[in-house]
Amino acid sequence: MTTPKISLQDVHKSFGPKQVLRGVTLDVAPGESMVIIGGSGTGKSVTIKCVLGLVHPDAGRILIDGTPAGRDRDAFLARFGMLFQGGALFDSLTVWQNVGFRLVRGKQKMPRAEAREVAIEKLRRVGLNPEVADLFPAELSGGMQKRVGLARAIAAQPEIIFFDEPTTGLDPIMSGVINELIREIVVEIGATAVTITHDMSSVRAIADKVAMLHDGKVRWTGPVGEMETSGDPYLTQFITGSAEGPIEAVR
């Protein structure tokens, strides 16, 4: 068995008295597209922030290629791309400066003109016109901002990419485009992708494997094809979106 690209082992995290993660254990293989599903507020975003070191777990281990994150955080983070749930675009910078942020800084920094070209190319891949390059994020619609965030996450060709709800707030056609894009990035570049989504059609389009988070733990994980026939009442309820079942509607 190969070493997993990302390995979470018994990760715990509380905010004050509130226990969010209660022992999350999850492996993601290299070049695999993992989709994390689960109810609102179950700690999906917190889980990937733990991997990136934005949130410090109270207990448990997180390994990348079998080793924990070292002292050099910049080098560590250079291997990751992240799309934040809210976009998190820098509103003092223009769209292309956002997308090319990493390209004009750091070790492999390129000239601004070249970075701009790359940024515009990435914008085109997420279905945005070159005209938006010189606008500020506040001048874009919510869905457009999300796609700029996506372009920024993939701009430096990272080997591990996290997408926090990439298709929320997009129309069905644009959702389709983004799903295809994520699939392409995994297949073409061989990147490892972890996507959080509530959209079951996205899950089917993107995922190799699926993990369901419930009550601070991974409730079920397996290949996307086995999702329908898992026999797990929690997962079944989640997929069918039924109000009847073990998951309480009020959380």
Binding site: G53, L54, R73, D74, G81, G86, A88, D91, G106
Partner: peptide, 16 residues
């Protein structure tokens, strides 16, 4: 910037 996660985003883009 803190509230809208822009500070977190800076960190993930290898910028302190």
């Amino acid at each position: 910037m803190r509230v809208t996660e822009q500070i977190d985003a800076l960190t993930t883009l290898s910028t302190n």
